[in-house]
């Protein structure tokens, strides 16, 4: 079973009234400061996407996800942070390296208790997407992401080697979408159900 997720980027100078209307009419997570490379909103596929009448969308980066694995530490999660990382494993990466990378990512919750719910998925569509993987987590607090996750030695001392252009084992392209937003519900509970 697959599901969809999209990163939505508004045009420069989007009509504020239309943006307000958009935010009130559909379930989009508005990205918080510190987000990198992923536009303005995350749409998690649990409600309608951007409605046809809304014209101020510059880019709608839709991906179809096939779950590798995930876990719900709190199926009744009611907030507060959903984080999504869309990434591209380089096409010449060895299959053994890709498998090791996926294993390392999925071990992160064992080392970082602040990760409440998580899912690792392969991007299986559309054919034109550049993304290969989607790594999602939910946290009770923003510090869970910005401090516990980012400052964990497991992160910078091990995981980041797959991303770091100074490391011989780098297999992930530097062009990432690292986005996070406030939420009052678990997108992953629906995805992993």
């Amino acid at each position: 079973m697959s599901r969809e997720l999209a990163l939505v980027t508004l045009v420069d100078g989007a009509d504020p009234d239309q943006v307000t209307e958009l935010e009130e009419s559909v379930v989009l997570g508005r990205h918080l400061p510190g987000t990198v490379g992923g536009g303005h909103y995350t749409w998690d596929g649990i409600d309608d996407p951007v409605p046809p009448g809304f014209e101020d969308v510059a880019h709608f980066d839709l991906v179809e996800l096939e779950l590798i694995d995930g876990s719900l530490g709190d199926p009744g999660f009611t907030g507060k942070i959903k984080r999504t990382l869309l990434l591209q494993v380089q096409t010449d990466a060895h299959a053994d390296s890709v498998a090791a990378f996926e294993r390392d990512l999925m071990a992160m919750p064992d080392h970082i208790p602040a990760i409440v719910n998580w899912a690792l998925s392969r991007v299986i569509g559309p054919a034109t997407t550049r993304w290969t993987h989607c790594w999602e987590q939910e946290y009770y607090t923003l510090d869970g992401l910005k401090v516990d996750y980012m400052m964990s030695p497991h992160h910078w001392g091990l995981i980041d080697g797959w991303f770091d252009p100074e490391m011989p084992q780098q297999i992930v392209d530097l062009d990432l979408a690292h986005v996070y937003h406030d939420t009052d519900r678990s997108a992953l509970a629906a995805a992993l159900d």
Binding site: M150, M151, P153, W156, D160, D164, P165, E166
Partner: peptide
């Protein structure tokens, strides 16, 4: 660790 991320980001 903060300095590590600063190094990593700059690189």
């Amino acid at each position: 660790a903060a300095a590590w991320w600063a190094m990593r980001g700059a690189a």
